[in-house]
Design a protein around this nucleic acid. Structure first.
Length: 282
DNA sequence: GCCAACGTTGGC
DNA sequence: GCCAACGTTGGC
Protein backbone atom coordinates (compact mmCIF):
# COMPACT_ATOMS: atom_id res chain seq x y z
CA UNK A 1 0.00 0.00 0.00
CA UNK A 2 1.00 3.08 0.24
CA UNK A 3 2.90 5.55 -0.94
CA UNK A 4 3.17 8.10 -3.37
CA UNK A 5 4.79 11.12 -3.68
CA UNK A 6 3.78 14.39 -2.81
CA UNK A 7 0.47 14.94 -3.81
CA UNK A 8 -0.01 18.48 -3.74
CA UNK A 9 1.76 21.32 -3.01
CA UNK A 10 2.80 20.46 0.28
CA UNK A 11 4.37 23.43 1.40
CA UNK A 12 7.49 24.16 0.14
CA UNK A 13 8.90 25.64 2.89
CA UNK A 14 12.06 25.21 4.21
CA UNK A 15 14.23 22.71 3.20
CA UNK A 16 17.57 23.50 2.28
CA UNK A 17 18.26 25.27 5.37
CA UNK A 18 17.80 22.25 7.42
CA UNK A 19 20.28 20.27 5.72
CA UNK A 20 23.00 20.60 8.04
CA UNK A 21 23.45 18.08 10.52
CA UNK A 22 22.32 18.15 13.84
CA UNK A 23 23.32 15.64 16.14
CA UNK A 24 25.55 12.93 15.69
CA UNK A 25 28.77 12.91 14.32
CA UNK A 26 28.76 9.89 12.53
CA UNK A 27 29.07 10.76 9.12
CA UNK A 28 29.36 13.64 7.10
CA UNK A 29 26.86 14.57 4.72
CA UNK A 30 26.78 13.41 1.42
CA UNK A 31 26.45 15.37 -1.60
CA UNK A 32 22.99 15.07 -2.66
CA UNK A 33 22.77 13.68 -5.97
CA UNK A 34 20.03 14.61 -8.10
CA UNK A 35 18.93 13.07 -11.08
CA UNK A 36 18.65 9.62 -10.11
CA UNK A 37 15.57 9.39 -8.36
CA UNK A 38 13.21 10.57 -10.66
CA UNK A 39 14.24 8.56 -13.44
CA UNK A 40 12.32 5.64 -12.75
CA UNK A 41 8.72 5.66 -12.70
CA UNK A 42 6.86 8.24 -14.28
CA UNK A 43 3.54 8.15 -12.98
CA UNK A 44 1.71 5.97 -15.16
CA UNK A 45 -1.41 7.62 -14.38
CA UNK A 46 -0.65 11.14 -14.79
CA UNK A 47 -2.28 12.15 -11.71
CA UNK A 48 0.31 14.64 -11.29
CA UNK A 49 -0.95 17.02 -13.63
CA UNK A 50 -3.34 18.73 -11.48
CA UNK A 51 -0.77 19.47 -9.09
CA UNK A 52 1.48 21.78 -10.67
CA UNK A 53 3.78 21.69 -7.94
CA UNK A 54 7.16 22.77 -7.85
CA UNK A 55 8.63 19.57 -8.08
CA UNK A 56 12.13 20.07 -8.25
CA UNK A 57 12.15 16.88 -6.60
CA UNK A 58 9.93 14.92 -8.74
CA UNK A 59 9.48 12.77 -5.86
CA UNK A 60 8.96 9.30 -6.81
CA UNK A 61 6.38 7.40 -5.02
CA UNK A 62 7.77 5.93 -2.10
CA UNK A 63 7.91 3.92 0.86
CA UNK A 64 5.18 2.74 2.74
CA UNK A 65 4.52 -0.56 1.60
CA UNK A 66 5.97 -2.23 4.37
CA UNK A 67 3.94 -3.20 7.11
CA UNK A 68 0.83 -1.81 5.97
CA UNK A 69 -1.45 -4.44 5.05
CA UNK A 70 -4.73 -3.22 4.40
CA UNK A 71 -6.51 -0.37 5.87
CA UNK A 72 -8.70 -1.75 8.46
CA UNK A 73 -12.25 -1.05 8.21
CA UNK A 74 -13.09 -1.55 11.69
CA UNK A 75 -10.47 0.80 12.71
CA UNK A 76 -12.14 3.37 10.75
CA UNK A 77 -14.32 4.91 13.20
CA UNK A 78 -12.56 4.20 16.30
CA UNK A 79 -9.17 5.30 16.87
CA UNK A 80 -7.93 2.07 15.76
CA UNK A 81 -5.58 1.40 18.39
CA UNK A 82 -5.49 -2.27 18.06
CA UNK A 83 -4.03 -4.29 20.68
CA UNK A 84 -0.76 -3.49 19.28
CA UNK A 85 -0.02 0.11 19.12
CA UNK A 86 1.54 1.22 22.31
CA UNK A 87 1.19 4.81 23.10
CA UNK A 88 3.79 6.59 21.26
CA UNK A 89 3.81 9.97 22.63
CA UNK A 90 6.42 10.73 25.15
CA UNK A 91 5.91 12.67 28.23
CA UNK A 92 4.93 15.89 26.67
CA UNK A 93 3.54 16.83 23.37
CA UNK A 94 6.88 17.77 22.06
CA UNK A 95 8.89 14.57 22.07
CA UNK A 96 11.46 16.52 23.99
CA UNK A 97 12.63 16.75 27.50
CA UNK A 98 12.82 19.86 29.56
CA UNK A 99 16.07 20.76 27.95
CA UNK A 100 14.65 20.54 24.52
CA UNK A 101 16.48 17.35 23.73
CA UNK A 102 14.58 14.91 21.60
CA UNK A 103 13.57 11.89 23.64
CA UNK A 104 11.79 9.86 21.06
CA UNK A 105 13.20 9.34 17.60
CA UNK A 106 11.83 7.63 14.55
CA UNK A 107 12.68 5.16 11.85
CA UNK A 108 11.04 5.33 8.44
CA UNK A 109 11.40 2.61 5.89
CA UNK A 110 11.48 2.92 2.15
CA UNK A 111 12.51 0.60 -0.59
CA UNK A 112 15.42 1.79 -2.70
CA UNK A 113 15.12 -0.85 -5.36
CA UNK A 114 12.55 -0.74 -8.11
CA UNK A 115 9.30 -2.39 -7.30
CA UNK A 116 6.10 -1.86 -9.15
CA UNK A 117 2.79 -1.27 -7.55
CA UNK A 118 -0.01 -0.84 -10.04
CA UNK A 119 2.50 -0.15 -12.70
CA UNK A 120 4.22 2.53 -10.74
CA UNK A 121 7.69 2.20 -9.38
CA UNK A 122 7.48 2.89 -5.70
CA UNK A 123 11.18 2.84 -5.05
CA UNK A 124 12.49 5.68 -2.94
CA UNK A 125 15.98 5.86 -1.55
CA UNK A 126 17.82 8.24 0.70
CA UNK A 127 19.44 9.66 -2.38
CA UNK A 128 16.01 10.47 -3.69
CA UNK A 129 15.25 12.28 -0.50
CA UNK A 130 18.55 14.11 -0.68
CA UNK A 131 17.58 15.41 -4.06
CA UNK A 132 14.33 16.90 -2.85
CA UNK A 133 14.12 20.61 -2.45
CA UNK A 134 10.80 20.77 -0.74
CA UNK A 135 9.48 18.75 2.16
CA UNK A 136 8.78 15.25 1.06
CA UNK A 137 5.42 13.93 2.20
CA UNK A 138 5.81 10.47 3.64
CA UNK A 139 2.60 9.41 2.07
CA UNK A 140 1.19 6.02 1.40
CA UNK A 141 1.42 4.60 4.87
CA UNK A 142 -1.64 2.44 5.35
CA UNK A 143 -1.07 0.87 8.69
CA UNK A 144 -2.69 2.31 11.79
CA UNK A 145 0.27 1.86 14.04
CA UNK A 146 2.67 3.42 11.58
CA UNK A 147 0.18 6.22 11.07
CA UNK A 148 -0.05 6.78 14.79
CA UNK A 149 3.69 7.06 14.96
CA UNK A 150 3.65 9.71 12.29
CA UNK A 151 0.98 11.61 14.12
CA UNK A 152 3.16 11.64 17.18
CA UNK A 153 6.02 13.24 15.29
CA UNK A 154 6.77 16.87 15.90
CA UNK A 155 8.43 19.40 13.73
CA UNK A 156 12.15 19.17 14.11
CA UNK A 157 12.20 15.54 15.17
CA UNK A 158 14.91 13.42 13.67
CA UNK A 159 14.51 9.91 12.39
CA UNK A 160 16.52 7.22 10.69
CA UNK A 161 16.01 6.51 7.03
CA UNK A 162 15.93 2.75 6.58
CA UNK A 163 16.28 0.86 3.34
CA UNK A 164 14.23 -2.29 3.29
CA UNK A 165 14.28 -5.04 0.73
CA UNK A 166 17.70 -3.73 -0.11
CA UNK A 167 21.13 -5.17 -0.21
CA UNK A 168 21.88 -4.74 2.42
CA UNK A 169 18.82 -3.59 4.29
CA UNK A 170 19.61 -1.22 7.08
CA UNK A 171 19.79 2.31 8.40
CA UNK A 172 21.31 4.53 5.77
CA UNK A 173 20.98 8.00 7.17
CA UNK A 174 18.96 10.62 8.95
CA UNK A 175 15.96 12.70 8.04
CA UNK A 176 14.06 15.43 9.79
CA UNK A 177 10.37 16.03 10.23
CA UNK A 178 9.59 19.48 8.91
CA UNK A 179 5.82 19.22 8.68
CA UNK A 180 3.63 17.50 11.18
CA UNK A 181 1.02 15.01 10.14
CA UNK A 182 -1.60 16.17 7.72
CA UNK A 183 -4.14 14.30 5.66
CA UNK A 184 -2.58 11.98 3.13
CA UNK A 185 -4.35 12.89 -0.05
CA UNK A 186 -2.94 9.95 -1.92
CA UNK A 187 -5.49 7.79 -0.17
CA UNK A 188 -8.23 9.49 -2.17
CA UNK A 189 -6.50 9.27 -5.49
CA UNK A 190 -7.71 6.27 -7.41
CA UNK A 191 -4.68 6.45 -9.63
CA UNK A 192 -2.32 6.26 -6.76
CA UNK A 193 -0.70 2.94 -6.01
CA UNK A 194 -1.78 3.37 -2.43
CA UNK A 195 -5.29 4.51 -3.07
CA UNK A 196 -7.55 3.42 -0.27
CA UNK A 197 -11.07 3.02 -1.57
CA UNK A 198 -12.42 2.94 1.92
CA UNK A 199 -11.07 6.30 2.82
CA UNK A 200 -13.50 9.12 2.92
CA UNK A 201 -12.45 12.70 2.78
CA UNK A 202 -14.92 13.74 5.39
CA UNK A 203 -13.21 11.53 7.81
CA UNK A 204 -9.59 11.12 6.84
CA UNK A 205 -7.96 8.02 8.07
CA UNK A 206 -4.46 8.35 6.73
CA UNK A 207 -1.92 11.01 7.43
CA UNK A 208 1.62 11.81 6.48
CA UNK A 209 4.39 14.03 7.73
CA UNK A 210 6.76 16.06 5.58
CA UNK A 211 10.41 15.18 5.88
CA UNK A 212 13.71 16.38 4.58
CA UNK A 213 17.15 14.94 4.16
CA UNK A 214 19.69 15.49 6.88
CA UNK A 215 22.54 13.14 6.17
CA UNK A 216 23.55 9.90 4.64
CA UNK A 217 25.89 7.56 6.45
CA UNK A 218 29.02 6.60 4.57
CA UNK A 219 28.16 3.03 5.41
CA UNK A 220 24.88 1.34 5.98
CA UNK A 221 24.24 0.17 9.50
CA UNK A 222 22.82 -3.05 8.28
CA UNK A 223 20.11 -5.11 9.77
CA UNK A 224 22.42 -7.95 10.59
CA UNK A 225 24.50 -5.77 12.78
CA UNK A 226 21.46 -4.30 14.40
CA UNK A 227 20.09 -7.73 15.13
CA UNK A 228 23.39 -8.70 16.60
CA UNK A 229 22.87 -6.07 19.26
CA UNK A 230 19.23 -6.90 19.64
CA UNK A 231 19.67 -10.25 21.22
CA UNK A 232 18.57 -10.82 24.73
CA UNK A 233 20.28 -8.35 26.95
CA UNK A 234 21.65 -6.40 24.04
CA UNK A 235 21.36 -2.64 23.76
CA UNK A 236 18.93 -2.88 20.90
CA UNK A 237 16.81 -5.63 22.31
CA UNK A 238 13.37 -4.14 22.30
CA UNK A 239 13.96 -1.83 19.42
CA UNK A 240 10.71 -1.62 17.52
CA UNK A 241 12.46 -2.26 14.23
CA UNK A 242 13.29 -5.68 15.57
CA UNK A 243 10.29 -6.46 17.68
CA UNK A 244 7.85 -5.46 14.99
CA UNK A 245 9.73 -5.78 11.77
CA UNK A 246 6.67 -5.21 9.65
CA UNK A 247 6.16 -1.70 10.83
CA UNK A 248 7.19 0.85 8.25
CA UNK A 249 7.28 3.76 10.65
CA UNK A 250 8.56 2.91 14.08
CA UNK A 251 9.85 4.72 17.08
CA UNK A 252 13.40 4.67 18.32
CA UNK A 253 14.37 5.28 21.91
CA UNK A 254 17.05 7.81 22.55
CA UNK A 255 19.44 5.13 23.79
CA UNK A 256 18.85 3.16 20.62
CA UNK A 257 19.29 6.25 18.54
CA UNK A 258 22.61 7.03 20.13
CA UNK A 259 23.77 3.48 19.92
CA UNK A 260 23.13 3.26 16.23
CA UNK A 261 24.76 6.61 15.62
CA UNK A 262 27.72 5.19 17.46
CA UNK A 263 27.85 2.22 15.14
CA UNK A 264 27.68 4.49 12.14
CA UNK A 265 30.46 6.58 13.52
CA UNK A 266 32.53 3.56 14.26
CA UNK A 267 32.09 2.16 10.82
CA UNK A 268 33.08 5.42 9.34
CA UNK A 269 36.16 5.60 11.48
CA UNK A 270 37.26 2.12 10.67
CA UNK A 271 36.87 2.65 7.06
CA UNK A 272 38.68 5.90 6.91
CA UNK A 273 41.53 4.33 8.77
CA UNK A 274 41.76 1.60 6.29
CA UNK A 275 41.58 4.03 3.53
CA UNK A 276 44.60 5.83 4.73
CA UNK A 277 46.67 2.95 5.66
CA UNK A 278 47.92 1.84 2.35
CA UNK A 279 50.33 -0.57 3.77
CA UNK A 280 50.99 -0.03 7.31
CA UNK A 281 48.96 -0.24 10.32
CA UNK A 282 50.83 0.55 13.38
C1' DG B 1 11.16 -17.07 -5.03
C1' DC B 2 10.18 -18.95 -0.45
C1' DC B 3 8.52 -18.73 3.99
C1' DA B 4 7.74 -17.07 8.80
C1' DA B 5 5.69 -13.47 11.35
C1' DC B 6 1.98 -10.85 12.21
C1' DG B 7 -1.86 -7.64 11.30
C1' DT B 8 -6.57 -7.40 9.37
C1' DT B 9 -10.90 -9.23 8.13
C1' DG B 10 -15.24 -10.77 9.04
C1' DG B 11 -18.27 -14.45 10.79
C1' DC B 12 -20.31 -15.99 14.89
C1' DG C 1 -15.78 -9.37 21.65
C1' DC C 2 -13.41 -13.60 20.14
C1' DC C 3 -11.01 -16.19 16.86
C1' DA C 4 -9.86 -18.66 12.50
C1' DA C 5 -8.69 -17.62 7.86
C1' DC C 6 -6.42 -14.75 4.94
C1' DG C 7 -3.18 -11.43 3.07
C1' DT C 8 0.99 -8.82 3.32
C1' DT C 9 5.59 -7.67 4.74
C1' DG C 10 10.19 -8.28 4.34
C1' DG C 11 14.31 -11.06 5.40
C1' DC C 12 16.91 -14.49 3.34
Amino acid sequence: MAGTRRSTRQTNSTVSKYVEDSSSSAAEQVPKRNGKKATRRKRALGQDEDEQVQDNCSTPPKKARKLESKPSKRATNTSDSPKTAPPVTPSSDSNRDVNGEQEVFWLLKAEPLPRYENGINVAFSIDDLAACTVPEPWSGVRNPQARNNMQAMRKGDLGFFYHSNAKPSGVVGILRVVEEAKVDDSAFDSKDPYFDPKSVKEKPKWYCVGVEFVKKFPHVVDLHKIKGYAQSGGPLEGMQLVTNSRLSVSRVRSEEWRFILGIAEEQDKIQSQEAQKPDQED
